[in-house]
């Protein structure tokens, strides 16, 4: 099955559209933003629902606390800011007031990973998946394109409990079905193959698809799985795939320490140890640059996935 880019769009706009639709359909939805309404594409929601939109100013800790309070009062709050300020900056507030308190807060984070680009390392958080997945009871989602982000934004309103929804800044290929079904905790088999399994999340799903086209030209058959929900992880779809292929490459725009790859490793070691290679940033911060330059330099692009795939095949044989 081939995937066509229906026109590149940013994932954050998928969030904005999803939120706007939710605002029209569910009166319990409220939204909070810490002075990044434009960046998070929350403008339409705030215009249509001024009484349900809370501008907190540049004060993320207070925003998370207020969201926990709104949830205590029965609302479904969506907080919006950059991933760095959504997680690392407010970890303790999320831990105590949201996660441990089991509040129905949706922490929505844009500009995740390296691909926010020119703003540089201070803003490029590569640790947020790890931070959030370690919190008991936290659902962690990283979407791959506009359509998937929109569907995820709507779907997370239907489950009770804290959710971390991670997306990005740049325009990326929009290739998933806009009328698709988004099931939290269920991976999506994008392409069947027999030689190796590539499990990718977020922006790297498209890179993985591109890599698989190149690899197929060399006679290598890749099975591609899109894991949008990192926690709870769809272990079944991964184990089923490696039982056929016998090796795996994980790909994420995140540090290899504590991200999707490590969750997969644990699953494999406990159930079916097979060779795995990791696409992700190493023990490093990012830097300024264009998204394309950055994912190339830090080894997250299509070519890096091809290289890792060949390496894992060698280890298998």
């Amino acid at each position: 099955m081939s995937y066509i880019n229906k026109g590149s769009k940013d994932t954050r706009s998928g969030f904005g559209e999803g939120l706007t639709e939710l605002g029209r359909s569910n009166p319990e939805i409220v939204a909070l933003c810490a002075d990044l309404t434009g960046s998070l594409k929350m403008g339409d929601f705030s215009k249509e629902n001024p009484e349900r939109f809370f501008q907190t100013g540049i004060a993320e800790a207070n925003m998370i606390g207020i969201a926990a309070g709104l949830a205590t009062g029965g609302k479904i709050p969506y907080t919006g800011t950059f991933a760095n300020f959504s997680t690392g900056r407010v970890y303790d507030q999320i831990r105590q007031s949201v996660a441990y308190s089991n509040k129905n807060v949706k922490i929505c984070a844009s500009h995740a990973g390296l691909t926010l680009g020119e703003d540089g390392a201070t803003h490029q958080i590569l640790e947020d998946i790890g931070l959030m997945k370690m919190l008991p009871g936290m659902t962690v989602i990283n979407t791959c394109d506009f359509n998937q982000t929109k569907l995820a934004t709507i779907e997370i309103s239907k489950v009770s409990g804290p959710v971390y929804l991670r997306f990005g800044r740049p325009k990326v290929p929009n290739f998933t079905d806009e009328n698709g079904i988004f099931k939290i905790g269920r991976g999506i088999l994008l392409r069947e193959g027999s030689d190796l399994t590539i499990v990718a999340t977020g922006h790297l799903v498209w890179e993985a698809l591109e890599a698989s086209i190149e690899l197929s030209k060399s006679g290598i058959s890749c099975e591609i799985i899109n894991i949008h929900t990192i926690k709870p992880l769809d272990e079944e779809i991964i184990l089923k795939s490696v039982s056929k292929t016998g090796c795996l490459v994980s790909a994420e725009e995140h540090s290899i320490y504590g991200g999707l790859g490590e969750s997969i490793s644990r699953t494999l070691v406990l159930n079916n140890p097979v060779p795995q290679e990791f696409i992700g940033t190493k023990d490093t911060f990012g830097e300024s640059g264009t998204p394309a330059e950055l994912i190339k330099k830090y080894g997250l692009d299509k070519d890096s996935i091809i290289k890792a795939s060949k390496k894992v095949l060698e280890r298998k044989n």
């Binding site: 409220v30 606390g65 308190s101």
Partner: peptide, 25 residues
């Protein structure tokens, strides 16, 4: 008990959130 507290400085924010929900309701 409505929320977990102990790590200090978080209660007023949570209280404000509850107060806002009361206004909406």
């Amino acid at each position: 008990v409505n929320v977990s507290t102990g790590s200090l400085g978080q209660g007023i924010s949570v209280g404000i959130g509850i107060a806002l929900s009361k206004k909406l309701n």
